[in-house]
Design a protein around this nucleic acid. Sequence first.
DNA 1: ACAGCCATGTAACTCGTTACATGATTAC
DNA 2: GTAATCATGTAACGAGTTACATGGCTGT
Lengths: 185, 185
Amino acid sequence: MSQDLPTTAYALLGLLTFGDDLTGYELKQRADRTLRFYWVSPAMSQVYTELARLSELGLVKARDAGPNKRSSKYSITAKGRRSLTAWLEREPAGFPVLKHPVALRLLIGHLVTPARTAALLHDYLDQLEVRSAELQRVRDSLRGRDDPGAAFHHPSMVADWGLEYFEGERTVVEKLLRRVEESTQ
Amino acid sequence: MSQDLPTTAYALLGLLTFGDDLTGYELKQRADRTLRFYWVSPAMSQVYTELARLSELGLVKARDAGPNKRSSKYSITAKGRRSLTAWLEREPAGFPVLKHPVALRLLIGHLVTPARTAALLHDYLDQLEVRSAELQRVRDSLRGRDDPGAAFHHPSMVADWGLEYFEGERTVVEKLLRRVEESTQ
DNA sequence: ACAGCCATGTAACTCGTTACATGATTAC
DNA sequence: GTAATCATGTAACGAGTTACATGGCTGT
């Protein structure tokens, strides 16, 4: 019991604890709306691979297969729930890992012109705005089901966290941009 | 020309553009002081693997091998420099990827007690303080060489960015902690 | 009829990790 | 002398990606 699976497997398992059954396809969509912002949304192919493994281990169960085994909904089993909570209690959380291509490029900014660095930061601000708006939509869709005790109380807290993170990034990058633009003159 | 290498290869190449030659070992140390905070510090073994590949491609050059080929310093070649700047100009930066185990656990907080979630966030605050202090030491070590035009101008900007990020995390997590602790009573 | 989305899966491959093996040099 | 640090590398493996293949269902 309580095998060691990759974190992504437990993450997907966790997405099945919100009271509904999902197809692999739907699970991927939920990952795109949640996991994507602070973990990684696994590729479609990996979702199916993980579901096969979790199914093998009895942590999820496929049901309701239509014709051709299509559209079968997966649900977490009692064993899966135990395995997930055991993991939560067993594994210390570990520090976040950030892969930040913009910061990496800024680090070696001496190799390009200040104008190029400024453009890099401007692009990043644009991307931030897009992401932020996407997350804002997700967050808004949880309104009314986000009180303490409600189904999406925790997801809404995480979404708020993400929104504040984006906001913080925006502020810092704007400040950096001013520093870079001073060197342009 | 301008092969497509993994980002980590270009990152290591970038660490060789600060005017000094490094052994694989020293390169790893520099990665631990810089890359670690906003990319990933590759394992020792990978540093050597990447150096071997970069060397093969003529992007870096090993020199000064002592007895037994030990302590040979690597330097970036003119070709390496061209390849790196070409990459900077060719590849758009892409959005950061965050793997945040704490946020992930908070998402499925309904599976554990509020006290456990609070403990999770407390632990994270402790870890944040440690990291922040480490980065602060790095940042302080750049003082005096961080003016516009100086060797470590860009690294110091990135370090400042990192410090503000840590500070932002602290603020948000403290706020979340209060929300969680309200449910404990 | 055709586009677009729903839906599932396999194969090949790369990145990067851990474990292992080896030995030199420096500090106490 | 012995522990810590410096220094380099190989082998096995796992996680996760892209490319590929397949086909159903829905709306226009």
